[in-house]
Design a protein around this nucleic acid. Sequence first.
DNA 1: CAGGGTTCTTGACCTGGATCAATGAAAACT
DNA 2: AGTTTTCATTGATCCAGGTCAAGAACCCTG
Lengths: 249, 249
Amino acid sequence: MTQANNVAPLFMDIAKVEHEHHLACQSCALYRLCLPLGLHSDDLAQLDTIIQRSHSLSRNQSLFDYLAPLKSIYVVRSGAFKTTVAASNGREQVTGFYFPGEFVGMDAIHSQSYQSTAKALETSSVCELPFERLSEIGAAMPQLQMQMMSRLSKELSADKNLMLLLGKKTAEEKMATFLLSLSRRFQDRGFSATEFQLSMSRADIANHLGLAVETVSRLLGRLQDGGLVHFEGKSVNIKDMHALQSLCG
Amino acid sequence: MTQANNVAPLFMDIAKVEHEHHLACQSCALYRLCLPLGLHSDDLAQLDTIIQRSHSLSRNQSLFDYLAPLKSIYVVRSGAFKTTVAASNGREQVTGFYFPGEFVGMDAIHSQSYQSTAKALETSSVCELPFERLSEIGAAMPQLQMQMMSRLSKELSADKNLMLLLGKKTAEEKMATFLLSLSRRFQDRGFSATEFQLSMSRADIANHLGLAVETVSRLLGRLQDGGLVHFEGKSVNIKDMHALQSLCG
DNA sequence: CAGGGTTCTTGACCTGGATCAATGAAAACT
DNA sequence: AGTTTTCATTGATCCAGGTCAAGAACCCTG
């Protein structure tokens, strides 16, 4: 690559190179999973020009805060995020975890302000889609609009299933469902379906599933004792996928 | 004392008049709340041509079933609906209630098949938006697409709040939140915020809030004893809105 | 308007998972 | 290195809300 004497971080270099060639999205490892899928190449080129790839965050840094005015929709590029909504007292609910290729911030479109808070779970980066400009170029790109709607719709059905989980499933069913959901998402991204790392804390998992941390700890122990899964700190190794599936309810 | 009798006939009459004049949307009582808001009159005229207003359902009849191929998005015209998602055994979760002006079926866009089942809670009617044709005309109407996205986004944030309710709130907080949500929605539709009819059964309420029917019954009794609300069968009369708000958590 | 179903209420009891408490194991800092 | 702080596990106890049971009030439909 050029600029051998430049000491800028790796991501900056990539961003620059991509920008010069106007090929950023096409050459992205997440292309298959991401917004540009199905766009014509000149539409894609136009989309490329408005996407800002610079944004990088460290652990616990927030991508946006509750009620901040909608500026951009974000696509996770690397790392992972959680979103939370808060009740009047201190309580809050972890409403979702987001991995590379997934959209964050779409619940802000209606009210034009974010309705949740998004925090990085580890060092992470995002592609930023400035909403104003996205709307402008989207006006002439029905496929882009349809892609966005499709994404919204996908998150909507995922949330309905989460409601089923929170409202009707037992602690064990919740845990099994959660692990399989992670497994599937890692697989979709080309990683192993059976071995992966939990980027979130036990507390985040517990909160997300409507359980206490202690319960999560006990459940994980129980699943491990049963030989279904092996845990070691944050790493997960699913030993019996089928048995796990039968626990989902 | 069915509240359907108050509402349904009115909307039916309007529907007839509207159709004759090809002004359906403009002259609809729900115009302020509905999709066409903000469209130019020629765009609206075009939208009018694809909307089917005929559809009417009786109590318990399903508008669409889980996994049926996506045909249309629906807007409630009169009456009320519930949507449910089912777990592998018999359990199911009531994921939402839908009132006039609200959209049903948007979670089908991504997978092109409905991801929930929608049932009428009483005699109800809908406007049907054939999705194929909606996409076609939407391609040339960015405002329409944006309206749809906005609707999706609105339901998304509502669902996140429901996750907070299901995961973190106590039975009493759930009940208070639910009653106030109904109150607000009736008010938005030009009805009283303090007196209205529950179109759904105790069982549906309980299910939706992740509670047992008996708990709902007891909570309603308790709220009534406290003088916050008066119940008589399906009718609700909120006596102390403020106190109710302070119970929402 | 009788009778059979369904839905709602109320009481008595029980349990899954929360809470409390104590300890161990990692990180993060100095 | 050691020290502090956060995070995870494990055990003991408790309670909010579920379950079971039995009426009561409300439908329907003939």
